[in-house]
């Protein structure tokens, strides 16, 4: 399968939400978000011929997006400070203006997680079941379960403490 311009536009149109959320979680400012978004799109297009129909397209897409985000080398380590992360979220993307604060708190809490834990919580928040998460990350279901319990507890504590 080739990623021609039409296919690329379709993928981008249909899955921009996923790519955008991954880009937001793994960066802390607009410029880096743009960079990561582009990088994920590039990798999706480049690896499109390796996609096998037996896998769900969204599973494959999450793999590409998360693997790209996790392996992204930070240009400037200082920018990754979680304290500044939440300030850079694009508020226009929140459905209800009253909820901006909660979303900010959630992003701030997630920004304190390591790269792998971010991937786990993102997949869980995106309603992926344990089996799918295990498949995407290449770890066991029991490992997913143990890690998620810890991450959710940390997340709740952080959000409540903010």
């Amino acid at each position: 399968m080739k990623c021609d311009k039409k296919t690329f536009a379709e993928i981008l149109d249909k899955h921009k939400g996923i790519i955008r959320k991954v880009s937001m979680l793994y960066t802390n400012n607009r410029e880096d978000q743009e960079d990561l978004f582009q990088e994920i799109c590039f990798q999706i297009c480049k690896s499109y011929n390796t996609f096998r129909d037996e896998a769900q397209f969204s599973t494959w897409l999450y793999r590409v997006a998360l693997n790209t985000a996790i392996s992204q080398v930070r240009k400037n380590k200082q920018k990754t400070a979680s304290e500044t992360f939440y300030e850079n979220i694009h508020y226009a993307s929140v459905r209800n203006e009253d909820s901006e604060g909660q979303v900010q708190q959630m992003f701030k809490a997630i920004s304190k997680l390591n790269r792998i834990d971010k991937a786990l919580i993102l997949l869980w928040l995106e309603e992926k079941n344990y089996e799918e998460i295990a498949d995407i990350l290449g770890i066991s279901k029991s490992n997913v379960s143990v890690k998620l319990v810890r991450i959710k507890r940390n997340l709740s504590e952080t959000i409540n403490g903010l």
Partner: peptide, 11 residues
């Protein structure tokens, strides 16, 4: 370097 593999395999 195929990002379509699982994260563990890819890394």
């Amino acid at each position: 370097s195929n990002p379509g593999l699982s994260t563990r395999e890819s890394l």
